[in-house]
Design a protein around this nucleic acid. Structure first.
Lengths: 223, 223
DNA sequence: CGCCTCATTGATTCTACTCAATTCGGGTGG
DNA sequence: CCACCCGAATTGAGTAGAATCAATGAGGCG
């Protein structure tokens, strides 16, 4: 498990705000701190946080870094349903079981809340769950009805917003992850990024660092 | 709005159970009845229950019939994020606003709960929200990573389970709805159904009534 | 320095979309 | 009752877009 260390600082709210492109303010919970001693656990990149089918025993809040949630088909096809960044809560269960895999994308710090949803923290839990639900439903629109270029553009804008709106975006995840999130192959993701670059919409400092040059053009791609 | 009539019967729990194909028991709430006088409202087919951006003022539980939730892109492309059947709760809001459209598929009865989530009903609300979340995440796997045949097969199995597992399935929605749910065109949906029919997997009594002949073959398509 | 993984680019294939033409079924009115 | 009409569904032909297969390039690390 490799779970290391444990601090107990007050939760620093991630500086994540701003409305997304379809006019929904993301509503990450301002804080999430049930009255219990909780701890921060660290994971290295690609480490498993929990597995599908595993007995759920806690909720998790990202402290720093990024987490991916995904499911697999029998033949190995993978769909990443969400990336979670600082401040976001994940690990909701139904029937006491996790229905997805959760893994660290890079090194990540996770605050663990071992007590289940109860009368004291229900509101925070519900708020976090609804945020995840709205996000999931919005993502369905992207993967169900947008073409490759639009998906990549939507992804970049989403990442940009979640990193504070700066023109320089850091992509902690691989092309493979992006593909599995957008329902595309890694080649198509790469091609679309190259096209955006060729059209002067973005600049690729390196494979994992992107600068948005023409934000309007990027947004236009999202309809 | 056309909202008609109002009864006040005790809620009859829909006979909806059974694990879905990926081993998740669907967890529709056994009941949902905050201690308030609530009423059943009836809608005709294609009537709007609420609109995107509309101020949210209630939660809704399907009494009978079917409801579709969807979003639109600027150019009219539509993604249906969920169909809801008897017993299921929808209409969760964030920031006091609905983020989706809700419409009756055919004639439908809806129990309306006007009071917001509170200390008395938080558990039921959370359970319903988590059920919707798990469903949404599972549907992402279908539209993100499965081909047309697999999507249609998954849809049929899902409908079958939600109607009690009988071999005879009633599809209250149009091919257009199915397409917008699965991220396919109506022609592709039709072709896949024809292919399943040609292969002896299903029988089409009429366009809206399907009999599952070879359940194993259907499930095999879902991986 | 060389290896290994990740990313990019190219050539080709194939799935699902688009456009178009029937067909089917349900409802209406003569 | 039957003919007609209209929207929904099916079927067909051709095309476009993303997947696949394959080769090359760029970093990062021992």
């Amino acid at each position: 498990m490799l779970a290391q260390a444990a601090t107990n600082s007050t939760f620093p709210v991630g500086a994540l705000s701003g409305a997304n492109r379809v006019g929904v303010s993301r509503g990450a919970p301002a804080s999430f701190s049930p009255d219990q001693p909780h701890q921060v656990v660290f994971y290295d990149g690609n480490q498993e946080i929990y597995a599908q089918g595993e007995r759920a025993k806690a909720l998790y809040q990202v402290e720093f870094g990024m987490v991916r949630l995904y499911r697999l088909l029998a033949d190995g096809r993978r769909q990443i349903s969400a990336f979670h960044v600082a401040g976001e809560v994940f690990g909701f269960e139904m029937d006491g079981q996790h229905h997805f895999f959760a893994e660290a994308v890079g090194r990540v710090g996770i605050r663990v809340f071992r007590q289940p949803a109860n009368d004291a923290n229900w509101r925070q839990t519900l708020t976090a769950a609804l945020a995840a639900l709205v996000r999931a439903q919005e993502h369905m629109l992207v993967i169900g009805r947008q073409n490759a270029a639009e998906r990549v553009a939507a992804f970049l804008i989403d990442m940009q917003e979640r990193q504070g709106g700066d023109r320089h975006i850091e992509l902690p995840m691989s092309r493979n992850d992006i593909g599995d999130y957008l329902g595309l192959t890694i080649e198509t993701v790469s091609r679309m990024l190259s096209k955006l670059k060729a059209n002067g919409v973005i600049r690729l400092t390196n494979a994992r660092t992107i600068e948005v040059v023409d934000e309007a053009a990027l947004e236009a791609l999202c309809e």
